[in-house]
């Protein structure tokens, strides 16, 4: 195991975060603060409680997930796409590192960053609304698993993308809609029965539901299923990455 290489990649990626502090930390926090002001303070005060939780508190887990998914994907995808774009990936490919080590470095850094952002959002939320976390250990578990899984997913997108548009298209066209329709802002029980069934095909529903359960003990779907879904998706991403490195797809000829 080339631990020095893992550390080098991790430090390099985290340094990138440091260089782009405004874009990578300030911007997601500002966006979330705006959500809290609009949906929490302004609109939320006119909404009824959901399952005994005030609307502003209800949306916190969903908002965190929204940022977590978006940030994990964009960090990890950009992290591996940029060296391909500039040509510096020659160094990664010619170094005595295994695919596994490269993934740990990039995905680890991307996940670290999105967990940090998630926690910062939680702190920011404190200024606007009250909330409690009933299952803190599960909350952290969900946070870590989701960050890791979606960082891996982002890594795959970054490997697959061969232009900047492709880098944006999956987060924008798929992940954002799935999150908005995945119960970030509502309980799926509020949907008509037909759409309640349809929405169960949206994997993000399970993430948000499980995450919200760790906060308030209420869930749209069984928590066990939520965890199982994350693990399944994680395995899918892992095998995707394994396949990519084995075949050298988009990396080498």
């Amino acid at each position: 195991m080339n631990l020095y290489a893992i550390r080098a990649i991790y430090v390099f990626e985290m340094a990138r975060t440091g260089r782009t502090l405004m874009q990578s930390i300030a911007s997601p926090i500002l966006t979330t603060a705006l959500y809290f002001i609009v949906f929490g303070a302004a609109i939320g005060s006119r909404m009824g409680e959901i399952d005994g939780i005030s609307y502003a508190s209800f949306i916190i887990p969903g908002l965190m997930m929204l940022s977590l998914l978006g940030e994990s994907i964009s960090n990890a995808s950009f992290g591996i796409y940029f060296p391909k774009f500039t040509g510096t990936s020659y160094e990664l490919l010619s170094a005595p590192v295994s695919a596994f080590e490269i993934v740990i470095g990039f995905v680890g850094a991307a996940a670290t960053k999105s967990v940090l952002i998630g926690l910062l959002i939680l702190v920011t939320a404190r200024f606007f609304v009250d909330y409690q976390i009933i299952h803190p250990v599960w909350m952290v578990t969900f946070l870590l698993l989701t960050a890791l899984t979606f960082s891996m997913f982002g890594f795959i997108i970054g490997l697959w993308a061969d232009d900047f548009q492709k880098l944006q298209i999956i987060p924008m066209m798929i992940i954002t809609p799935l999150t908005f329709l995945g119960g970030a802002f509502y309980s799926i029980n509020m949907l008509p029965p037909f759409w309640q069934k349809v929405t169960l095909f949206n994997p993000v529903v399970y993430l948000i539901s499980g995450f919200r359960w760790s906060f308030y003990g209420i869930a749209d779907v069984n928590v066990g299923i939520s965890i199982a879904m994350i693990l399944v998706f994680m395995l899918l991403c892992l095998s995707g990455i394994w396949l990519i490195f084995r075949t050298g797809y988009r990396l080498k000829s």
Binding site: A8, I9, F12, G87
Partner: peptide, 24 residues
């Protein structure tokens, strides 16, 4: 390499440490 492929926004010294670490 033949192409001038560099991590443009990085400074020289961290890049040196990066390369050394990458090679174990």
């Amino acid at each position: 390499p033949q192409e001038l492929a560099t991590a443009a926004f990085e400074s020289v010294l961290p890049q040196m440490n990066f390369s050394r670490g990458l090679f174990g």
